[in-house]
Amino acid sequence: MLEPVGLTAAEAEMYRLLIVAEAASAEEIASRSNLGVPAARRLLVALEDKGLASAVEDSPGWYSAIPPETALVPRLQRQSDALEQTRAAIHDLVETYRRSAQAWSGCDAIEIISGAAALRQHLRQLQDGARHEMLWFVKARYLAMPPESNQEEYDALNRGVLYRALYEQEYFDDPSAVDNVVAGVRVGEISRAVPRLPLRMAIADRSVAVLPLNSADAPGSPRSLTAALVRRSSVLDALVDLFEHYWEVGAPLRVTEEGGIGGAGPEDAASPAGEDRHLLSLMVAGMTDETIAGQLRVSKRTIQRRIQGLMNLAGVATRMQLGWHAARRDWL
C-alpha cells in the first residue's frame, strides 16, 4: 500500500515492524518474522537511506522508526504535488492536440469525436437543437444509437422539424427495420430508399453534421469509434449536396394500411398497378425475393418473373435501374 510513496512491500512491512518494536536490530526483527538476519539488515539500511529509520546512539546495529507524520506525510505531499503537475501537463497536451486538430481541419470547421457514447450524445444533441430540418443517411448496422431508441426524432417531429431519411437497401436485412421505418413515417418522417449509401451521417438545419469515420464492419471496441463534427464550411456544403443528389434518385417509401412498406402513388398511362406497385416498393426497400414472396404469398419464382416483366415495361436491364425508373415515374 505504500508503493506510491516509494516503498517496496517488504520495506513497508519492515517499517511497520519497527514502529511496533520502537527500536530493533536485524537479529530482533528476524526473531519476530520469517526474515533472515541478512535480509532484515538490508531492509533496515534501506529504511535509513529513505529517511524512515535512524540508527540508535550507543547501540550499534539497532534502529528506531522515524514517525510517519515526519517521514511519510511530506513524501505523500510531494507525490500529490507531482501528480497535480502531471495532470496539468496532460491537460495542456490535450488542449494543444485540440488546437492542432482544429487548425489542421480548417479553422474549427471539423472536430473529432471519440467513443460510441460521445457520438450518441452528439446525435441526441444535434436533434434536440434542430429547428427546421434533419437530413439522414441511414446505413445498415448502427454504430452508436439503435434506431428504436431515438426518441429525439419523435420530439423534433412534434416541434415541427422536417425529417428526411435515406435508407440503403441492406438496412432492411434487419428483421426490425421495416417496423422502425413504418413508425417514423407514421409520425411524419419522409423516407426514401437507394441501393447503397457511401457513408452514414446526420445534418441539422444545414449548419452542422455528424458522420462516423468507422465502418460498421471495422473491428474494435466502442471506445475506438471516431466521428467528425462538421460545421459551416465547404465540406458541409458538399455533404448537403451529396444528400440532395441521393435524395433525387431515391425511391419513396410509403406505409400501407396494414403497416407495411408499399402503397400506390398517382398512376401514369404505362405504370404498373395493384400488387406490382406493392412489389416494387418492397424491392426498392431492399427486401429479398424470399421476403417479398412471403409478404405477397406467392412463390419466389413468381416474384422473379414479375420483376422481369416490370423491367421490360420500364425498358431497363437491371433491378437498380428499375428502382430509379420507378422513383422518377412515381410508380411506388
Rank of each mutant, 00 (worst) to 15 (best):
M134E: 11
A238G: 15
H245T: 14
S149R: 03
A209R: 06
M134S: 12
R124C: 09
G220M: 04
R186Q: 14
M201A: 14
Y167R: 06
D155W: 02
F243E: 06
A202V: 13
R196N: 02
A156Q: 09
A130K: 02
L242I: 01
V235C: 01
D155F: 05
P195L: 07
D217G: 06
K139Y: 00
V178F: 02
N214L: 12
A202R: 14
P219T: 07
V138E: 14
G188N: 10
L236S: 01
L211A: 14
G129E: 12
L126I: 12
G188T: 08
G220Q: 03
L143T: 06
F243S: 08
Y246D: 11
E170V: 08
L123T: 01
L211Y: 13
Y246V: 07
L211D: 03
V230L: 10
V185D: 05
N150V: 11
K139S: 13
S233M: 09
N150I: 10
A183W: 00
R206I: 03
A227T: 05
A238Q: 12
F243Q: 03
V178K: 09
P147W: 01
T226P: 04
A144H: 06
A156K: 07
T226W: 03
E153T: 03
D205C: 10
V185G: 07
Y163H: 13
N158P: 00
R159E: 02
A140P: 04
V194Y: 02
V194G: 06
D174W: 05
Y167A: 09
V185Y: 01
V187R: 12
H132W: 02
A209N: 08
D128P: 01
N214A: 15
A144Y: 10
G188C: 11
G129F: 00
N180I: 10
W136H: 05
